[in-house]
Amino acid sequence: MHALDIQQLRKTYKNGVEALKGVSLQVEAGDFFALLGPNGAGKSTLIGIISSLVNLTEGEVKVFGHDLRTARRQAKQCIGLVPQEINFNQFETPLDIVVNQAGYYGVPRKLAHERAERFLTELDLWHKRDQPSRGLSGGMKRRLMIARAMMHHPRLLILDEPTAGVDIEIRRSMWRFMRGLNEDGTTVILTTHYLEEAEQMCRNVAIINHGEIIEHTTIKQLLGKLDVETFILDLDRPVTDGLQLEGYEYRRLDAQTLEVDVPKARALNGLFRQLEEQQLRVLSMRNKANRLEELFLRMTDQEAA
């Protein structure tokens, strides 16, 4: 069953901007799905339409089989949304915010309090439950929005850059939480600028650019398309101008640092051998960028070209 089934979705804003140009997308129930795209690609519009904050111009959106046009209430009941921007009343306490949210979805107040304790505790916010939420840190505010979105036990959780601006330790704890939700059966759609996040967490991916889906596949298959990886090598001594590395393209970043493109068909051994033949020892080596990031940039660059 599809958690989300989008057919030929179009959105043209009043100012004439065509944000979505016939997007079709399916997300299987239980999936952990990445929706990627550069800024202005149409991700937020797409999420806005799914969550009923943006009116669609044309097309069809079904959430667990409920059509947004004909069964909007049932579709909304299935969705939990964690938006990109902070959108709770910062004068209210975290406890009030999550309990009220449950109420809007028809969860009785007693049960809402039980769930609030569970989610606020899991997201390490319980001790802040009675403080005005404007005093929370950026990471806490983001976690509060996740807790809020979970209060009615949605079957589909949409997270729009949930870890933006959050330090790595909290980001990892949020990943654990999201992974746990997915393991418990919640379908998760994630948009993120940290492509490492998508690579680690998601099974399937769609890349949207200029209002169109340019790729819709599994993360594994997508990464399989990566035919070149770029490495940065720190060497033990300066590189001469005439350095020859047959079969590898390279750029000199500084006297002792090289950026080398390594085709998938060629092993790294050949590169090391050639460097050794020229009395150059590799002190350390790292990926220039995350693999998915590299692929993503290539695909969106190709599209732009």
Binding site: R73, Q74, L81, N87, F88, N89, Q101, Y104, Y105
Partner: peptide, 17 residues
């Protein structure tokens, strides 16, 4: 105020008529 600070979205995304 709810519209300006966007927290009206909490209600708009819910299934409330």
């Amino acid at each position: 105020g709810a519209k300006f600070a966007h927290h009206i979205e909490e209600i708009l995304v819910s299934p409330l008529p």
